[in-house]
Design a protein around this nucleic acid. Sequence first.
DNA 1: ATTTTTATGTTAATCGATTAAGCATATCTT
DNA 2: AAGATATGCTTAATCGATTAACATAAAAAT
Lengths: 345, 345
Amino acid sequence: MSKKVSIKDIAQTVGVSTALVSYVLNNKEKEARVGKEIAQVIRDTAVKMGYQPNQIAKSLKTGKSYTFGLIVADISNPFFGNLARNIEDEAKKFNYTVIFASSDENAKKSQNLINILTERQVDGFIIAPAENSQDQIEAILKNNIPLVLIDRYFKDLGTNCVVTNNYEASYQAVSHLIEAGKTNIGMVAYQTDLAHMLDRKQGYIDAIKDSKQLKAKIPLVKMVDFNAGQEEVEAGIREFFAQNPTIDALFFATNTLTLKGLKSLNKLNYKVPDDVAIVCFDESEAFDFFYSPLTYIEQPLLEMGKKAVQILIKNISEKKSANMQVSIASKLIIRQSSAATVKKN
Amino acid sequence: MSKKVSIKDIAQTVGVSTALVSYVLNNKEKEARVGKEIAQVIRDTAVKMGYQPNQIAKSLKTGKSYTFGLIVADISNPFFGNLARNIEDEAKKFNYTVIFASSDENAKKSQNLINILTERQVDGFIIAPAENSQDQIEAILKNNIPLVLIDRYFKDLGTNCVVTNNYEASYQAVSHLIEAGKTNIGMVAYQTDLAHMLDRKQGYIDAIKDSKQLKAKIPLVKMVDFNAGQEEVEAGIREFFAQNPTIDALFFATNTLTLKGLKSLNKLNYKVPDDVAIVCFDESEAFDFFYSPLTYIEQPLLEMGKKAVQILIKNISEKKSANMQVSIASKLIIRQSSAATVKKN
DNA sequence: ATTTTTATGTTAATCGATTAAGCATATCTT
DNA sequence: AAGATATGCTTAATCGATTAACATAAAAAT
């Protein structure tokens, strides 16, 4: 390492104290009443010597790292990748940098990541919490580290969170299927207690129950494990149809489930939308290429990312947890996969 | 912030010096000849008080941040998201943490990110360099900060890099199209001087020229701007066909180009593979759902990510740049979109 | 000619660790 | 018994900044 230039080096070259250099380079000349000429000399010398402040030293002294930790389930999932990108961009506006980490929906990993990031003195966390990570979240709060949950949240924890209107969006999506004439709508969801998933489920259930059109108002939900691979999902769907042969529409709870589900339907030779209509939560580049373009719920990832950062920054600067629960509306994008049933005679 | 527990707090509680605490908590009891009993007391107290080392302070003293910077074009692009994930996992094995940033193929942004990360004292960089960022890379090298380029590289810079065999993979892919009976194979590529793209182009060109089968050995390459949206790509492809009406196969240079290209082909009503056969570099979840599943070049993202981290760690620990150029072979996945032409009569 | 201001700088403590060097005691050697 | 060795712990400098408190010379005021 070709020894980096420090404030001390500049001070020596110019022939002043390090204090002066610090004041000037932090634009505190006014408060510190630094002479105009010497200030200019210091600035010029800093540039000439290629000075780059040591953010680590700065952080140690000021207690602010200008970094936050982003913990998602899996950064390679485009849903989180997109979210991460929006968070990154917004964070940059406030001179913040983001350390990311993937928890794989695993509470143990999650705890480990939180520890690592805490040791690194992140100024705050943005977390899409894994199941059973409630204690961890509470611990962060107790340590007074600013925190915003994103995508998921815990009902009985009054933490900051930014989510979409899971219940309403699901309700609307399912209602749309009902209006399209579907009479046996099943839902495929992840087996989890995470509130956002329960909300989506409840939205589905209530839409079914509230329906004036449906004769059989019996919700049919197929649960699949979070870490289920293609085979498990396929087996689940096969079973689902076996138990409920009259299903004529499926509502998928996430993009990953949808992708595996569609592959399963292809294999099982179900035609969309004639045999089964489809609506799904989240989007995917792939949905545009399915032979019957998918109707999906588009989440406001840009707004969610932005908002999460803004709340976090606010919390950091005001150092009291304002506890904002923000819900941003999703949008149902209607396409072919949920086309109205044509009456056959 | 409920004041964090420091080594000093532990020292006071136990009634020893901070040095002793430091030695014990860093498992240097042997070297420092710390008494067995007191060591245990220190350890217990640390746990009881919930001590978490301040990594920032540690970094300042030791000069190692156990962090590296990952700069890619766009973390929301699944290609980079996947790479990032693999890098994250491998880094974790060495107790490293990753700060990520997206350069948007923009040299100015890239320089800005490099500065920010340098100030944060990252121990090393993994970069998928943007066009015209050669100087920046050289500057990092001159500063003796360990660096590994990934995905892309610069021909005349002897830096560490981990890439796939772009030339050979393209050559093989195009040869496959030729064998499948295609006679007018066009390539759609990004307009850039980045070596990996030139390699892909050259692979295409040479495969055409070396062919024994082809009558017209004239390479046809359509260039598209890096930041081209759907419309520009569509216009480009329309033009491409207008100028070369006999094109019966297209080789796309990246996943993003492919996605836009396929949408364009759909709009222009070309059928795959009958009107145009398709092969593309990179993969995408979407490729599985195209009506004619795509033949594509699968890059070894896991190996690339791992290798990049390993080289970086090695460079960091040995503090001399070994300069390894690693190329890992891609794999051609053949599916319907490049099916052999059936002779019509 | 003092005293007060004003203008400019410097000193030194501090953030939370690490670690070489030093200082007692105790235990061996021969 | 006297020096050598081992054991156990402390001191204090250091990493690269920030910043409150203090210092001093020149200009202005009285």
